[in-house]
Amino acid sequence: MRLKFYEEKDDHLIERYTITEAQLRYTMSPKESIELVKQDKNRHAILVLDKDKFVIFFVLHEKEGVKPYSSNEQAILIRAFSTDFYEQGKGYAKAALQLLPDFVVEHFPHINELVLGVNLPNTAAQSLYKKCGFVDEGRRAKGINDELKVISYYIRSEPN
């Protein structure tokens, strides 16, 4: 499994990605997210591929995007995280989140914290993030539909 930055040549994968109305209650579709990425150099669309199968999508948002969630200038926000409907329950989300810290260290070496907002009713996602090392420090933010629990994963920098 690997994480890669979105490129226009990936549009055929985006077209085939299945996201349901139930999922859209908690997240934004890859198509909508990519439109925002194209307008904002601080947003980076990430595709997670299992061999050539596109299974997970999310956006890493730097700088202004993080501010409603963290005062840490070295934090990056994970947003619009979703799993293709037909690939849910296969462990892809957990595997992607476990690969993410190394990906961030490689491509964003100045980042030491991953932040995300998870909808309070979305207990399945909260459980997944907790298993992957995210911590709830009691911060909350306003989401589109629900209040968000703001959680963080701290990237330990290795001494040189």
Rank of each mutant, 00 (worst) to 15 (best):
I111T: 13
V115R: 03
D52T: 10
R43Y: 07
V105I: 15
A96P: 07
H44K: 13
K131W: 00
L128W: 06
I14C: 05
T18R: 14
H110N: 12
N112C: 05
V37A: 03
K38C: 01
S33L: 03
R43S: 06
I76E: 03
F103G: 03
E35K: 15
K53A: 04
L77G: 07
V66H: 01
K38L: 07
R139N: 09
I46G: 04
Y17V: 07
Y26M: 09
Y154P: 01
A80C: 11
R79Y: 00
F54W: 05
V48I: 11
N72H: 02
F81T: 09
T20R: 12
E32T: 12
P101S: 04
L77A: 13
I144Q: 11
I111P: 04
K9Y: 05
N160M: 06
E32A: 14
L47A: 04
R79C: 08
T18G: 04
I151N: 00
L116A: 11
K51G: 00
F108M: 03
K90R: 15
N42V: 05
V48C: 14
G117C: 02
S127P: 00
L148P: 00
N72I: 02
V66Q: 04
V59A: 04
R139A: 12
Y129L: 08
S152K: 12
E158A: 11
S29C: 05
Y129C: 03
I56V: 15
Y17K: 09
Y86M: 11
F54N: 05
Y92S: 05
N119V: 03
R140W: 01
D52F: 01
K38I: 01
T27S: 09
Y26W: 14
I14V: 15
I78D: 02
I46N: 09
F103M: 02
N145W: 03
E35W: 00
K67V: 13
K130H: 12
S82Q: 09
S33W: 04
G138R: 07
K53R: 15
F108C: 02
K67F: 05
K4T: 15
D52I: 01
L114D: 08
K94S: 14
Q126M: 10
G117W: 01
F85S: 15
L13K: 14
A125D: 03
V37E: 09
E15Y: 09
K149G: 04
R140Q: 10
N72S: 06
E7V: 12
E147T: 14
D11E: 14
L49M: 15
N112T: 13
F5L: 09
E147V: 11
I144K: 14
L47W: 06
R156K: 15
K67D: 08
Y129N: 02
F5E: 10
L60F: 05
R79K: 14
R2I: 11
T20D: 11
V115I: 15
H110I: 07
A22N: 13
A96H: 07
A124D: 11
V135D: 08
K53N: 13
L97R: 06
Q88N: 10
D40R: 06
V55Q: 00
R16H: 10
